[in-house]
Amino acid sequence: MKFKLRYSEKIVGTFLIVALIIIATSTGYLLLHNKVFEKKFLFKAKFGDAVGLSSSTPVYFKGFKIGVITDFKLTDDNFIIADLKVYEEFRKKITRNSALFKSVNPVTSTSTIEFLQGPENLSELAEGSMIPAIDIPEGEILLAKNMVKKTGDPLNTVIYNLAAFSENINKDNNVDKGAFFRALVNLADAAEGMKKITDNLNVDFESISKPDKFGKRPLASLVVNAANISDSLRVMTGLVNHSLMRLDNVLTVYSQPEGLAAKMIDPDGKQIIEPIHKTLTNLNEAILKLEKLSDFLITQQDQFIIVLKRIVETLDEVQVTFETINGGPFIGKPKSERKK
C-alpha cells in the first residue's frame, strides 16, 4: 500500500494512458477498417423491396466489401432507390450492365448484397448511374441475357431460382405455361394405368395356379386375357411414350439459355440436363422396343391358341393311350372287370 501511495501518480498516469492508447488505437483501426477516410464514388442502386436493407448494408464482390448502402427511399413507382458508395479501390469493377443481388437472412432479417459484375470488356459505369437489382425488370433482363451471372451462397441461389422458376412458369405470357405440369399429370395417369394392368396380371397369375370351379382349364381364357393385357399395354405404352416425349420437349425448351429450368437446375446444362436427356432418350428407345415386343406378341396370339389347343388334344390322346395301356391284358385288369 505504501508503494502504491508513493508511486500513486505514476501508477494512475500509466493506468489512464494505457486506457487512452487502447481506445485511440481501436478507434483509429475501426475508422481505417471502415474506410472512413477513403474516397468513395456514389452510385444509385434500385431494388424491388427494402427488406433487410439498412443505412450501412455492405456490398460484396467476390467476398470483398466494395461499398456500402448509405440511404434508401421508396419511389413513386414502388421501387427502392438507394445510395451506393463504392470505395476507390474497387471503382474499376463497376462496369456497365452490372447488377446487384440482395439476399435476406431468414434468421436475422439482415440482407447481404452481392455485386454482379457485367461483362469485363465493357467500360466503367459513370458515377451516379443506376445499378439494378436482379429482382426488378431491368435486372431480370440482364440476367436473362446472361450479362451477369449469379454466384454467392448456393442455398440462396437455389431458393432464388426456385422462386423465379415458380413465378415465371405460371406467367400468362409464357408459351409453356402449365406444360410441365400437364406432362407430369399425364405421366401420373400412365403410371396409374400401368398399376391397374399389373394388378390384372397378378390376378391372372393367381387364377392360373388354381383349377377353375367349373373344372375347366383356364389356359384358354388366360391366353385371351394375355391378348387383352398386351393390347392395353400397347395403348398404355403409347401413352407413356407420348408423356415422356412431351416431358422431353419441355426440358429441351427449358434447357435453352433463356430457359427457366436450366437456370434453376443447371446453368451449364452439363451436370443434370444432358444426363436427364440421355436417360430419357434411352428410356424412349426401351419403350419403343417394348412396344414392338407387345405388337409381336399380339400377332402371335392365334399361333399360341393353336399350339395350346394342340397340346390339349395331344394330352387327351395321351390320356386315352394310357387308359388303353392300363386296361390291357399285360398290366391292368380285364376290360370286363373295369366296366363293373
Partner: peptide, 13 residues
Amino acid sequence: LIRQILFTGFEAL
C-alpha cells in the same frame, strides 16, 4: 483525485 483513481480504478483492475 489521484487516490480516488488509484482506489476506484487501478485497484479494481
